[in-house]
Simulated scan of single mutants.
Amino acid sequence: MLRHWLPKALLLPLYLTLTACPAVQQEAASASDKAVTETAHKPAVMPADPDPALWVIRDRDTTIYLFGTIHILKPGMSWFDEAVKESFDASDELVVEMIKPDPAVMVKIVTELGIDKTGVSLRDKLTPEDRADYEAALIKLNLPVAAFDPLDPWFASVNLSILPLTRTGYQADQGVEDELLAQAAARAIPITGLETPEQQLGFFDNLPEEVQIRFLNFTVDTIDEAVDGMEIMVAEWANANVDALGELMNAGLEDRILYETLLVNRNANWAEWVDQRMEKPGTVFLAVGAGHLAGESSLQALLAKKGHVAERVKY
């Protein structure tokens, strides 16, 4: 399910243009079914008291908490309590994927990276069959078929895949990072971004166009299952079912280029950051997309190779 490998930078531009958030595309129900079958795990039921997974790395004078986030949620989820809140309150620095820029700055970045510069309409880049499916999807969403013609394929995918979610109650300003950033601002503690907006959006803009078009076609093919897939993923996150969550998310990363770009390379960079940060005293609360903390290429796995063992916080 590709949605939760996507950078946080996609939240703000979509919120400004379509009341949206990050999601180039998703395996949704098809990927969810596959993961459930492979792991013999039935999809979790949303708990009344969400308790997402939390890890900690410690040495003599440094503590770093690792917390997996969901970038878009429905209002009213009470996850910021118990061990999560206690760990956050004990921290003197918040680290997130990206610090939100001023909205006007973000719009400028998106305009530069998400708008096509070749002069060829998005629909004209598709085969006749793919174009027919794409236009049918737009019509089903009550959008003009030319709505995304000026966009690069990756950005059209983002917009298409998020619309079903926002129409069923998910809100771009209700993600985990939004709450953590507000809490950090209230306490006036330092906030560090691991990546810049330009870097995050550049991951997609720099993909070969044929890869972007595959993303778009896949988004069209799975758009009807977006909401169900999201519901399953959020429930697994809320129940701290890390293995099941990893299976769900890895199911959407079969394209090697995507896997390397969105997961492996970023986790490697972040592992290096954590390794260097462990040389300084203090307590850090590091919050990144939950997909980065699950599976064989997780941030914890890369940190273990550097000698840092992440222990699960039991609560």
Score class of each variant (00 low, 15 high):
L2W: 01
R3E: 07
H4S: 10
W5T: 06
L6N: 09
P7T: 08
K8W: 04
A9N: 06
L10P: 03
L11P: 00
L12R: 07
L14G: 06
Y15V: 04
L16D: 07
L18A: 09
L18W: 01
T19G: 13
T19N: 12
A20V: 00
A20L: 14
C21S: 13
P22N: 08
V24H: 06
Q26N: 15
Q26I: 04
S30M: 05
S32G: 12
D33C: 05
H41V: 09
K42C: 11
V45Q: 12
P47R: 09
A48Q: 11
D49V: 14
A53Q: 05
A53F: 05
L54H: 02
W55T: 00
I57T: 04
R60W: 03
R60F: 09
T62H: 07
I64N: 05
I64K: 08
L66I: 04
L66V: 04
T69S: 15
I70F: 07
I72W: 04
G76P: 06
M77V: 11
W79N: 06
W79C: 08
V84M: 13
S87L: 07
D89Y: 13
S91R: 08
V95L: 02
V96Y: 01
P101V: 05
D102T: 12
A104Y: 12
V105G: 09
V107H: 12
T118H: 11
R131T: 01
A132F: 03
D133L: 14
Y134V: 06
A137N: 08
A137P: 09
V145P: 04
F148E: 02
L163Q: 10
L163S: 01
L163F: 05
T166I: 06
R167I: 00
Q174D: 07
E177C: 05
E177D: 15
E179F: 06
L181I: 12
A182F: 05
A185F: 09
A185Q: 14
A186Y: 11
A186W: 11
R187T: 10
R187L: 15
A188P: 04
A188E: 15
I189L: 14
I189T: 10
P190I: 02
P190W: 03
I191T: 08
I191D: 02
E198K: 07
Q200M: 13
G202V: 12
F203T: 02
P208H: 10
E209W: 01
F218E: 13
F218P: 01
D221K: 12
D228Q: 10
D228K: 05
V234N: 02
V234D: 02
A235Q: 03
N241W: 03
V242I: 13
V242Q: 13
V242W: 11
A244C: 08
L248D: 10
N250C: 08
A251T: 02
E254N: 11
Y259L: 14
T261H: 07
V264Y: 15
R266D: 08
N267C: 09
N267S: 12
A271K: 05
E272M: 14
W273S: 04
D275S: 15
D275L: 12
M278H: 11
K280T: 04
A290H: 00
L293K: 03
L293M: 10
G295Y: 09
G295L: 09
A301L: 05
K305M: 10
K306S: 10
R312G: 03
